[in-house]
């Protein structure tokens, strides 16, 4: 079980209101990602759920039970921290055993769970080492192991991959997803990286300044961003947003077109511009096109083989049904 409900939750630090009244339901077994730029309140929200911070008002329910005033230890939640927060003076084995020791589990049950977690996380050979002797990825696994053995009703991850290098990050991302498939336990995952959000989530919660901008599956958010902020935040490279004339032609204050929804041609098209930088990734090429009269730079994704270079003249055509229209307030029209 692991159904978490936030009911009109607010948080202020002194005079500063970090989270305005917020409602959210996280269903049992869901992988939910809180995503947003730094300072958007996503970590605070996670810490409120964890019980590491008090809510200023409102209610948090875990499996229907009011947990608002419960100390963290009683919420049956496990957390993986950004810094892993391993106990440096304990061996890996003792680190993993610590929550079970606190819960007073019998020794043999502790041992059984440690062994199975270690096997699942490839840590069997490292059980007697100290965290200081492990690599970043291994430390991450220990932190996950320490969370698993408690058999919590939900896992909380606070930017767990941001201290890893890029290659390791992709691997760990997959491991966490596989873990989720295997355990089918609720996971709440905080990140500022929209790629992690898109690839991992069942449900994404986009936050800005403590407000929920949109909740939905990755593809819903991609296809129908509710406003300009979500449109710009979800998807990589960023969506191109234009105002003025081209927008008015589509009957909107602003329009947005994703780089992958613009066709490029050297001969003809709706818009015209000059190639600034062409980023060749092999499979794709990202063109940064200037002097279009639309915006400073228009980003376009083209086929990796398209022979264009700096200074070339190029024509762009947006896919008509993939144009997002926004009104004056930045809301989807």
């Amino acid at each position: 079980m692991g159904r978490i409900t936030l009911d009109k939750v607010t948080k202020s630090f002194g005079e500063v209101n970090v989270i305005p009244p917020l409602d959210l339901t996280i269903n049992d077994g869901e992988f939910v990602v809180f995503v947003g730029p730094s300072g958007c309140g996503k970590s605070t929200l996670l810490r409120l759920i964890a019980g590491l911070e008090d809510v200023t008002s409102g209610q948090i329910r875990i499996d229907g039970e009011d947990a608002t005033r419960m100390p963290p230890a009683q919420r049956r939640l496990a957390m993986v921290f950004q810094s892993y927060a391993l106990y440096p003076h304990m061996s890996v084995r003792k680190n993993i055993a610590f929550p079970m020791k606190m819960a007073g589990l019998p020794e043999d049950e502790q041992k059984r769970r440690i062994d199975s977690a270690a096997k699942a996380l490839n840590l069997t050979d490292y059980l007697d080492r100290r965290p200081g002797q492990l690599s970043g990825g291994q430390r991450q696994r220990v932190a996950i192991g320490r969370a698993i053995v408690r058999e919590p009703s939900a896992f909380l991850f606070d930017e767990p991959l941001s201290n890893l290098d890029a290659a390791l990050r992709v691997g760990m991302r997959l491991e966490i997803m596989e873990l989720h498939k295997r355990l089918a336990t609720t996971m709440i995952y905080v990140t500022h990286d929209q790629v992690e959000a898109m690839t991992m989530a069942d449900k994404i919660v986009v936050l800005r300044a403590g407000n929920i901008e949109q909740v939905g599956s990755p593809l819903e958010l991609y296809r129908e961003p509710r406003n300009e902020f979500v449109a710009g935040f979800i998807g990589s490279p960023k969506m191109n947003i234009f105002g003025g004339n081209p927008a008015q032609q589509h009957g909107a204050a602003k329009i947005g077109v994703r780089p992958e929804h613009i066709a490029a041609s050297t001969e003809t098209g709706t818009w015209e511009g000059v190639v600034g930088v062409a980023e060749h990734l092999g499979s794709d090429t990202f063109l940064h096109v200037h002097e279009t009269g639309l915006a400073e730079t228009v980003t376009v994704r083209v086929d990796g083989e398209l022979p264009v270079k700096h200074g070339d003249r190029i024509f762009l055509t947006p896919e008509a049904d993939k144009i997002h229209r926004f009104n004056e307030q930045g809301l989807r029209a």
């Binding site: 630090f13 019980g51 590491l52 911070e53 008090d54 100390p71």
Partner: peptide, 8 residues
């Protein structure tokens, strides 16, 4: 940055 419980 802590709960009421921790503060008391």
């Amino acid at each position: 940055m802590a709960t009421q419980h921790a503060r008391s």
